[in-house]
Design a protein around this nucleic acid. Structure first.
Length: 473
DNA sequence: AATAGTTTTGG
DNA sequence: CAAAACTAT
């Protein structure tokens, strides 16, 4: 009998195209997941269901998933010792805390003569292996995407899922998924009540979502990806990719095989995800500190009331409010609307981007530290390859451009649904008779804007001007 | 992955 | 005089 192996599942909750499992042919395995800190609320809901789905799939293959809660630095080496595993295998992660944890776990394993083997499993290409011609990490997206595109020409095809696994003997009793307490419980109201109508966590759900997107969305992707009301405007794969229920390699190959219009545009979006992880790998401070140092002196005007109004979707700007409510109800927000809502918070309201990023991490089912941090820094203008500081989205113009008939706003802000197109993105300009005709009582059904757009814009520009003395690039 | 204000164009 | 082009932020 070959040596047993401990298979440590983290953000690769799938069987197909899983290099960790593929390395295990004919070896007895103990699949384990250790919950150390629960993720944000919405992501925790997703994790619960994803772990349950993975558990079922692994049980069918003969090796049930062991669920534990506690410190992996101690639990993983203990478990490896208990089943006599010389090696622990896992997928490599980019989050700084996970990297530190893996290094410590590795050290603890090594002290007992064991090893931790990390596989490329969450990304198309390892972030530490992509370099500029000069040998440095990339800090600009376009050259990064060009380099990675070239590297991916020889991307091997996805690996098949194992049909049968042999369970290593000696596993202790694990926890049922419910014991991880990842779901909202009383007295907290069930904010996830609507999630199941929108999502099916787990590998099967991910595969089905990819198939449906290829069928209904890919060909029109270049045209529709900025239409937040379009049913198949985007793939909706972000939460599945975040937990590795499907690999980017599977998505990459499937899109290329399908071919046709929209493929290039779609693949470039996958590379934004890669780029975010590349940045986080090389700049682990990215989640908390601006990548452009002059932004450390930015005069934010932190205000709990403004932040709360934004969180609740009560800013008075329909496209922002619709987005924030879609986020709360479904755990997801369309990418175009994320940019608009984020820009409004950091520019017009002058709230620190870190506060917005924290709210997104708590409410998004796809809460990904790399993508979230990189994107907020991009919007705020303090990121490596960020929008110039003077790029300030006007939520009314953006709404009129990308949601011209107000379908998105009407869906998520039903109190405005009967307003004519002309005022759907600027209800505060509607004459009283129009409001009355649409059944909107001013100040009662919909609040006045939190800030005048011209004033907010000028104030943001002034704030940015005040830090420009720094060594801006 | 902008916007606002100004100037120029062209029917 | 509306639309397109240009330009500063």
């Amino acid at each position: 009998m070959p040596d047993p192996v401990l298979v440590w599942f983290r953000q690769d909750l799938r069987l197909a195209d899983n290099p960790v499992l593929a390395a295990m042919t004919d070896r007895p395995v103990l699949p384990v997941h250790v919950l150390e800190e629960p993720p944000g609320g919405a992501a925790a809901w997703w994790l619960h269901h994803s772990l349950a789905a993975l558990g079922r799939a692994l049980t069918e293959r003969g090796a049930p998933l062991l669920l534990l809660r506690g410190d992996p630095r101690r639990l993983i080496p203990d478990l490896a010792a208990r089943i006599g595993a010389a090696e622990v295998h896992a997928g490599r992660l980019t989050e700084p805390s996970a990297r530190a944890r893996d290094a410590e776990t590795h050290a603890a394993l090594q002290a007992a003569g064991r090893g931790l083997v990390l596989h490329r499993n969450a990304l198309l290409h390892e972030p530490h292996l992509v370099r500029t011609g000069a040998g440095n990490p990339f800090s600009v997206y376009t050259p990064f995407s060009r380099a990675v595109f070239a590297l991916l020409e020889g991307l091997p095809p996805p690996l098949p899922a194992p049909t049968h696994l042999t369970l290593a003997p000696g596993a202790p009793e694990g926890l049922p998924p419910d014991a991880l307490r990842l779901l909202p419980r009383p007295p907290v109201p069930d904010w996830a009540a609507d999630f199941p109508a929108h999502w099916t966590p787990g590998e099967e759900g991910a595969t089905a979502r990819l198939g449906a997107f290829l069928e209904h969305g890919l060909a029109g992707y270049a045209d529709r990806r900025n239409d937040p009301a379009a049913e198949w405007g985007t793939s909706g794969l972000s939460p599945h990719l975040h937990l590795g229920e499907i690999s980017p390699r599977q998505v990459w190959h499937a899109a290329r095989e399908k071919g046709g219009k929209g493929v290039e545009t779609f693949l470039k979006e996958l590379l934004w995800r890669e780029f975010s992880h590349h940045l986080l790998w090389h700049r682990p401070e990215m989640p908390t500190a601006p990548l452009r140092p002059e932004f450390r002196a930015f005069p934010w005007r932190r205000d709990a009331d403004l932040l709360r109004a934004w969180q609740r979707g009560q800013t008075g700007y329909p496209i922002v409010d619709a987005g924030m409510r879609q986020l709360w109800r479904t755990g997801w927000m369309h990418n175009r609307v994320r940019m608009i809502a984020a820009s409004f918070l950091v520019k017009h309201l002058l709230q620190p981007w870190q506060d917005g990023a924290a709210w997104f991490l708590d409410t998004l089912v796809d809460a990904d530290l790399a993508a979230n941090s990189a994107s907020w820094q991009w919007v705020a203008g303090c990121g490596a390859d960020a929008a110039p500081y003077f790029r300030i989205f006007n939520p009314v113009l953006q709404g009129e451009k990308f949601d011209p008939d107000g379908a998105y706003v009407r869906r998520w802000c039903p109190e405005l649904a009967r307003l004519p197109d002309r005022f759907i993105h600027r209800p505060y300009e509607a004459p009283e008779a129009v409001l009355r005709g649409a059944g909107v009582r001013p100040g009662r059904d919909y609040q006045p804007p939190l800030v005048d757009l011209a004033l907010g814009r000028d104030r943001a520009l002034a704030a940015f001007a005040s830090i420009k003395g720094g060594q801006a690039a």
